[in-house]
Amino acid sequence: MEKETKTNKTLIMFSNDLDKALAGFNIAIGAVSMGFNATIFFTFWGINILRKENFLPCKKGITDKIFALLMPRGPDKLILSKMHMMGMGTWMMKRVMKNKQVAMLPELIKLAQDSGVKFIACQMSMDMMGIKREELISGLDYSGVAKYLEEAGKADVNLFI
């Protein structure tokens, strides 16, 4: 396929719900496959999707530590926005996805990065929640609202998830 990029697509990943993240990554991956540029701007709760699974001892204050403990660490820890049912719903959904061979979130994140979806992490959200860069996966850009608006200005699709 010729890389004839017509327009860009941008997504704001605000949520850290499993279902919403799945939808967002699907769209971004579809976009790059069809020759568009796709950018996902991760802000607020969405930052948690980018966290490494393993606990990383970092120097931070007690509130930041509590924050980090209460929020999901990485794609495997996310839960459904509905029907979580104390874990049973999310567990069932993951099982159904596996049986029906629907791509799981960690797989989609890797696929998105490999196929050229640009990931931007909101530095302000990270500072607010006390998340350090070394706690997030590699291959990210870090910036603020101006960078996002510049990207969105070049795009004809812009989704808030």
């Binding site: 991956i29 579809g30 790059v32 496959s33 069809m34 020759g35 061979q101 629907v102 696929l111």
Partner: peptide
Amino acid sequence: KRQKCPLPIVAIA
């Protein structure tokens, strides 16, 4: 076969 959206499109690309 058996692959679900968006994987078939990704594979074609």
